[in-house]
Nucleic acid binder design. Structure first.
Length: 956
DNA sequence: GAGTTTGAAACT
DNA sequence: CAGTTTCAAACTC
């Protein structure tokens, strides 16, 4: 192997390094002759030949210089089998480049260099190539163009030329670069030192090494590569090719190239294209080099700056001064190529980075990159455009970039870089957008209900102006306007929790509009952003409205120890920044502390995802919503998600959040002796009462008006159910709340948004209805919807409550809600102090049962009062629908977690959620029914027992 | 305005 | 999960 093979191999290797075409002949030549020098001559010859076909143009083109460089590199590689060794290449390359530079400088003819390169290729004999490296420089120096002109025969002769010659040449010519090259390549060094023989030896060695290095697997690749190369060089080298090809095939030399090839294969097409394009030759060389050499090697070479000399070739560097650039570009191109092979994307980036890459290479790369980029960009665009303006802008940029890229090589690079940046941006945007979208979407889902922070509610009530929709909504709308992305669906309920605000923005148009009255009323709505919040806080008349006797309706806080970063702080709870009106001490709830605020919110949400959800949710049918929204009045139907736990205030004082919000207590409430004038929760308060006070409350409830109307039967049922299910009155609320509590955590999953309570509430309704609904299908659908609703709820949290739809002011709605949806009750229940966070899951379960079946959960309360009493389903259904509709939010959020989140119920529900998504949007009305169904379905789970109530409530 | 009451939030 | 503590608002005087 060593001697013969070595010879052949080295030659082959050299050939491979040079170019497939050249490779073949060169290799053979090398093998036979080992004289690199001759090959150089061959180059000219080949070059001449080459000139004929397209290849020549390539060489001729400034790129040809590159080709030279490439050739040199190849040679270097080839010669020193070490070329395989990247190191060697790197070493060699610089010399080569230097040699090239010298040549260029010496010859002062770019053409020469270029020609030589093409020639080299044509010479293609790998040996020649190697020689060419040595020779070329020398030749170039000596006969810049002459060598090129030499015919293939000459080339072959050259190839025949002894290495000694080559060595000599190297010494002579390069004493500089060539030597360097030689020196760089061990083999070359040998050659230089010992002379041609050594070189041959070195070559043989190199070949050995190469062989060793080259994986057998590469052979196939080599073949392919050869083909590719042949494509590239075919025309010019034609004759040589055959030989070279044959050699390649027969010889392992190709393998050397082949190594490169793997990468090159991919690159080849590109390279080919590039070659076809402008300075194809140079590019080719570069490509080949690249292929043969690793990008790194190339870089190293370029790094040597020798290539810069090559820049002398006008082709390479349209910009004469940019020798360095050229080199860089080369490197870049190489890199890019390698990258491409490795990763298209990376290519893009690299290319971008390489903006300066040689045109041919660049073009190729760029094109590919461009295409890829375009693809990516298109892809991104599609995504981004939707997502955000920024995205659109970015897209536009990208497009521009693309165009520009197309326009010019360099530009393309720039473009590519831009594109990269753009991509990054876009990615960022995407993320942002995605988040936003998600948030927006999520937010959107809420629509059905109106959420109000208690504070806000109160304020709302106070402030006729803003009413439910008011400030928060207005702010949201405004924001939305500002942010096209964030457009709030008109219908969508606006919810302003500081945190939530953002999502709200995104609120999608929901069939049903859930209006979440942010507690903010009191204070500025916590705008999405601190700035907003700031503005809102500043602006917030809302805040003033509510509490703030001092402020106008605007709440103020007097926090002294909480730093306004706890829910104790109304402002913070409302998602609003503290305003000047606030008397808080050490207030951190200010725009300047957004980070802190966020952290605090996160912490709080971690505990209770719905913590910032509006405490009061109004569910309004679209009609209702519109009316209400228009009116700006908090719908009586509004409820506390969590409900109150009043024990002494009888819900007749502002201590009671329900009362404060101007909302009747709901099933979710745990209040004792509720006398809420706004309405009693047939369910909630009663439930508790029922348990505790049942009779009295009932009466009261009855007093509360029709609220109880349903109660009649329900009451009894409820009572029983409560007794059974509820066991603990406290729990009832708790149930909701508890479940809610638990749920909230789960809610977190879906998104902090839907708090358990809500979800629970929603869930319940579903269950309620569903339980009855026997049909599994129904249940399923309903479940899905329910999930969605749930998910929605979580989102809306409050909305869930709102969704209850009953909204008839007062309890009427309530009962409905209760009846229809335990959910509604749930929401309140959840809202109940305890339940506030997560009760949902429990609620759901409980509700389901309780609601219908089980009083256990607060639901039962509702159920008792309203659910049963009324055709719950009716009211519920609509409510449910709304909830479902809101889905949007739920979709993302709920779907996944909501179900899970809601413990057992969720599980049950989970299937429905999926559907819900689909259904949500679909039917507001149907949704309602859907909810009912859901409820039914849900109950179905529990349903098992005629009314889970017994089972669950008791069971629980 | 100070003190008390209340209930939610937070913590254990 | 229940109980306790903390907190701030609401209320009373």
């Amino acid at each position: 192997m060593d001697s013969p093979d070595a010879v052949a191999k080295p030659s082959s290797a050299a050939a491979a390094a040079e170019s497939p075409q050249v490779k073949d002949s060169p290799f053979l030549n090398f093998a036979s002759t080992l004289s690199p020098i001759q090959p150089v001559d061959t180059r000219p010859a080949a070059f001449v030949d080459v000139n004929f076909p397209s290849p020549e143009p390539v060489f001729k083109t400034p790129h040809t210089n590159h080709l030279r460089k490439l050739d040199l590199l190849r040679r270097c590689e080839q010669l020193p089998s070490p070329s395989h060794n990247p190191k060697l290449f790197s070493e060699v390359v610089p010399p080569v480049s230097s040699s090239m530079a010298q040549l260029n400088t010496c010859c002062g003819k770019e053409c020469e260099g270029d020609e030589s390169l093409p020639q080299d290729r044509p010479c293609s004999s790998p040996s020649t190539c190697v020689d060419a490296f040595l020779v070329e420089p020398s030749e170039d120096c000596e006969n810049p163009s002459g060598s090129r002109d030499a015919s293939l025969e000459e080339a072959s002769k050259l190839s025949q030329i002894n290495k000694s010659e080559v060595q000599i040449d190297c010494r002579q010519k390069d004493s500089g670069p060539v030597r360097d090259l030689c020196s760089n390549s061990p083999s070359l060094h040998l050659d230089q030192d010992s002379g041609g023989l050594r070189t041959s030896q070195s070559e043989s060695i190199s070949t050995k090494e190469i062989e060793m290095k080259i994986p057998a697997s590469t052979t196939k690749e080599l073949m392919v590569e050869d083909v590719k190369f042949s494509y590239q060089a075919e025309q010019p080298l034609a004759g040589l090719k055959k030989s070279s090809n044959e050699e390649h095939l027969g010889k392992p030399d190709k393998q050397k190239e082949v190594k490169v090839i793997p990468h090159t294969e991919e690159l080849q097409p590109v390279l080919k294209n590039a070659i076809k394009g402008d300075g194809s030759s140079v590019e080719r060389g570069a490509a080949t080099l690249i292929q043969g050499h690793r990008a790194q090697d190339v870089k190293l070479h370029t790094g040597s700056g020798q290539w810069g000399e090559s820049s002398c070739n006008p082709q390479f560097l349209p910009q004469p001064n940019d020798a360095s650039r050229v080199v860089d570009s080369y490197n870049d191109s190489c890199l890019a190529v390698s990258v491409v092979s490795a990763e298209n994307q990376t290519l893009w980036d690299q290319e971008d980075g390489a903006a300066q890459c040689p045109r041919g290479m660049r073009k190729r790369l760029q094109f590919e990159a461009v295409e890829n980029n375009q693809k990516l960009s298109s892809w991104l665009y599609s995504d981004l455009t939707d997502s955000t303006d920024d995205v659109s802008n970015a897209e536009s940029q990208l497009h521009l970039d693309k165009h520009s890229v197309n326009a010019s090589d360099e530009i393309p690079i720039v473009n590519s870089s831009k594109s990269e940046t753009f991509l990054h941006k876009s990615s960022a945007n995407v993320n942002r957008g995605g988040q936003k979208k998600a948030t927006t979407v999520r937010m959107v889902p809420r629509p059905s209900g109106i959420g109000l922070h208690l504070n806000s509610v109160a304020s709302i009530g106070l402030s006729s102006e803003k009413s439910l929709t008011n400030p928060g909504i207005a702010s949201i709308k405004e924001e939305n306007q500002d942010n096209p992305m964030l457009k709030l669906p008109e219908n969508s309920s606006s919810y302003q929790s500081p945190l939530d605000v953002e999502p709200l923005r995104s609120s999608q148009p929901s069939k049903c509009t859930d209006i979440i009255v942010t507690p903010i009323n009191v204070k500025s709505v916590p705008a999405k952003d601190a700035s907003r919040s700031e503005e809102s806080s500043k602006m917030s008349p809302r805040k003033k409205r509510k509490k703030a006797p001092e402020d106008e309706g605007h709440k103020r806080c007097n926090c002294k120890r909480s730093k306004c970063l706890k829910l104790y702080c109304d402002c913070f709870a409302a998602g609003a920044f503290c305003s000047e009106a606030c008397a808080c001490l050490e207030c951190s709830n200010r725009s300047e502390y957004q980070d802190t605020i966020r952290e605090a919110k996160q912490q709080i949400e971690s505990r209770n995802p719905l913590a910032f959800a509006p405490k009061v949710v109004l569910r309004v049918t679209q009609q209702n919503q519109e009316n209400e929204e228009n009116k700006g009045v908090t719908p009586p139907s509004a409820r506390h998600k969590r409900g109150c736990n009043c024990k002494k205030s009888l819900c007749l004082k502002k201590y009671c959040e329900c009362y404060q919000a101007g909302v009747g207590c709901s099933f979710g409430c745990r209040c004792e002796g509720c006398k809420n004038t706004y309405g009693r929760k047939d369910g909630c308060g009663e439930l508790i009462e029922i348990e505790h006070k049942k009779p009295v409350e009932r009466e009261e409830k009855d007093l509360s008006a029709g609220k109880l109307r349903s109660t009649g039967v329900n009451m009894e049922v409820i009572n029983t159910s409560q007794r059974l299910l509820r066991l603990s009155p406290v729990t009832p609320s708790i149930q909701g709340s508890n479940s809610g509590n638990n749920v909230p955590k789960s809610h977190k999953l879906p998104s902090s948004y839907h708090t358990s309570p809500e979800s629970g509430a929603l869930v319940l309704p579903y269950y309620v209805e569903s339980p009855s609904s026997p049909t599994n299908s129904m249940s399923i659908n309903t479940f899905e919807e329910a999930r969605e609703e749930l998910s929605m709820i979580p989102y809306d949290q409050d909305q869930a409550l709102l969704k209850l739809d009953s909204f008839s002011p007062g309890w009427d709605g309530f009962p409905d809600i209760c009846n229809l949806s335990p959910l509604t009750s749930l929401s309140p229940s959840t809202t109940h102090p305890s339940s506030s966070k997560i009760k949902e899951p429990k609620i759901i379960q409980k509700k389901v049962f309780p609601w219908r079946s089980s009083p256990a959960t607060p639901l039962p309360h509702f159920a008792e009062r309203k659910i049963f009493s009324e055709p719950d389903s009716e009211s519920v259904l609509p409510n449910i629908r709304e909830d479902d509709i809101p889905q949007e939010i739920s979709d993302e959020r709920l779907p996944i977690k909501s179900v899970q989140a809601s413990s057992p119920k969720q599980k049950r529900v989970s299937p429905p959620q999926r559907r819900l998504h689909g259904t949500r949007s679909s039917s507001s009305p149907s949704l309602r029914s859907g909810r009912k169904f859901i409820l039914q379905s849900v109950p179905s789970f529990p349903p098992l027992t005629p009314y889970s109530k017994n089972n669950r409530g008791q069971g629980s």
